[in-house]
Design a protein around this nucleic acid. Sequence first.
DNA 1: GGTATACTGAAAATCTTTCGCATCTTGCCC
DNA 2: GGGCAAGATGCGAAAGATTTTCAGTATACC
Lengths: 150, 150
Amino acid sequence: MVGSARDVEIPLENQQIKQAGLKVTAPRVKILEILEQSGKRHMSAEDVYKALLSHDEEIGLATVYRVLTQFEGAGLVCRRHFEGGQSVFELNSGEHHDHLVCVKCGKIVEFLDTTIEKRQARIAAEEGFKIEDHSLVVYGVCPDCQKKRG
Amino acid sequence: MVGSARDVEIPLENQQIKQAGLKVTAPRVKILEILEQSGKRHMSAEDVYKALLSHDEEIGLATVYRVLTQFEGAGLVCRRHFEGGQSVFELNSGEHHDHLVCVKCGKIVEFLDTTIEKRQARIAAEEGFKIEDHSLVVYGVCPDCQKKRG
DNA sequence: GGTATACTGAAAATCTTTCGCATCTTGCCC
DNA sequence: GGGCAAGATGCGAAAGATTTTCAGTATACC
């Protein structure tokens, strides 16, 4: 009646990795776990690497980059290039969205606005461009940081 | 009757640099000239450096970066972080605009859409954010590149 | 013109990300 | 269950973009 052993032997992560056409290896499973379990939706490769270290996982930074890039290619995660050097990765939630980033504390709010999407499509069409992707990031100061420093 | 010598001794670039609170030096004047005279509105530091070399100017790449960063701080130019490694700089035209970038040939089209700007402002307000800046880049394939490869 | 200050060039340092290669694992067949 | 080939990993080294260091030089101002 309680789940058989098999239930825990094939966790969801493994299936996702397998479906992506990748071998199920410890680094891949661990990285996917980190992405799912860490409270942060947006993590840099360095963040993931540090999280792995704090879980006593012996995984090289190069592997983290390699795996994240593969996950990106497989559509499991999205890579974002915000200002400030490093890229951040987030689990692919299935639907596109844009970002509001606090320049003080780094807090990130996701949003989706169909009006903006439509205008973009129209503008691209007017110029004859075929859209492949787009990136909209609004930088500002979040409510908390506004309170903290007048 | 013809302009006195003074007219040509104080070109506009020098005034812009001086007003920015910077000393008028050869590298700064040359870099500003390149930005104004080159046909491209968007140049990477490397582009500027190469343009200087082809004008037989002995200016180091480090200086190009330094000067462009100072110009950015002074509001003379804007720095843009598109995907693909390097930043590009453009002369500050005074009014904000967004970009449509061809992923094949790198062509860049600027556009401004008040509907999008308004929606951004509203979204930020709903989240309590005070907007400082924003970046909207639409990546696609331009008409020319669409023709070239089906 | 003289001088304090700011600027420059070249090399070295940083930082993020990727590569090369020897070694180790996984997935799969028997 | 063992063996094998393809694919992964880890490490250090490399690459690419940008910044810093530092000693020498030029600029602004008196």
